[in-house]
Simulated assay, not measured.
Amino acid sequence: MSTQELFVAAARKWLFAGRKPLSIPQSLDLAAQVSAVDLGLKPALLYDSNSASAEQVQQYLSSLQSSQLVSKSLLTLDLNGNALVINPVAVRSNVEQLFHDRNVAVIDVCHSLEKPKITDPLRGELRSMTHDVLLLLRGLEQMKEAEKPHYVGEKAEDWNLCTVFGLLLGYPVTYWFDQTESFENCLAMTPLMVTTASATWQADSEGHICRLYSFSVPADLLQEAQSTLENWRLCLQERFQQQNVFKDLTVCQSTVTLPSVCL
């Protein structure tokens, strides 16, 4: 079997919802995403292809590792019912940079605000949450090959998952809101600049175009966040040049305005 066929077979065997397996295009896209995590092009993947459980995602990942399609360092994390495939070293390094370099822009989108604003990433509750996430990641980095997903404990129930996902997925900007006040936000009808990074996954002889990143920043805050975005782009290009599995990296931007934004 070809590399692509092995990836597709593993996905269709383990990642089913009810009796329905993933489609071949879904399986190929997932394979490209997991390969990107393995290479460190992105620190983590939030699994959302269907409603497969974290246990199923771990079985899929273990199958890939047994076939030597990805390294044994990748782990499955269950965060409040959300399954993530993570590269422990890459994701820990990304979160540590928030503490040391403050190179992630945290945008406050509380519903009570007139418009979004960039906030101090190390303010009170944000600092405490990020510290807890960092402790978790350092512990995961010490783990050997896992047979089961790692379940985050009760402490995560108080985390703002929107912010945490932004950190884990390697976004240069992440949204925050006071969830004790409201889970709504002030992004409705706010022009958002969406940045998308795509590349071609070269498994076997056929290429598969894969979207590695997609995140937004309010257009009014683009100038304030520009240096952070540029640093992220340069770092991505540097990592891209250190591998030969993906080619044709493309980073593009577009503006959208939506009547409501779900975070």
Rank of each mutant, 00 (worst) to 15 (best):
K115Y: 13
T174V: 06
P218K: 06
Q33P: 06
R233E: 10
H131V: 05
S2F: 04
L46N: 07
A31T: 01
S214E: 15
R239A: 11
Q26V: 11
V37M: 06
F183Y: 14
V8S: 03
S63A: 15
S51Y: 15
E224I: 00
Q33I: 12
R239G: 09
H111F: 15
I24S: 09
L169R: 06
R123M: 12
L46I: 10
T196G: 04
R138C: 07
L28S: 07
S182E: 09
S73H: 14
T3F: 04
G166I: 15
G40M: 04
N244T: 14
K247P: 01
N160V: 09
S66C: 07
F183L: 10
M1V: 08
A44I: 05
N185T: 09
T195A: 03
L113W: 04
A90T: 05
R127N: 12
Q202N: 14
L75N: 07
D78L: 12
Q202C: 14
P43F: 03
Q241A: 07
S71G: 14
G40Y: 10
W201R: 01
W176S: 02
L6I: 04
T180G: 08
V152H: 00
I86E: 03
S182N: 09
Y151M: 07
L263Q: 00
R19S: 14
S67H: 10
K148T: 14
K115E: 15
A36D: 11
T200G: 03
E154L: 11
A52S: 15
L161H: 04
L75V: 12
F99E: 02
Q226T: 02
E181C: 10
T130V: 14
D132P: 10
V245I: 12
T76R: 05
L168G: 06
T119D: 00
A31D: 10
S35Y: 05
L98C: 11
Q56I: 08
A188C: 06
G18I: 08
Q202D: 12
L22H: 08
K148W: 08
S62W: 05
G207D: 14
L79C: 10
S67P: 00
A52P: 02
F165N: 06
T196R: 13
L39W: 15
M1L: 12
V104N: 01
W232G: 07
L167F: 10
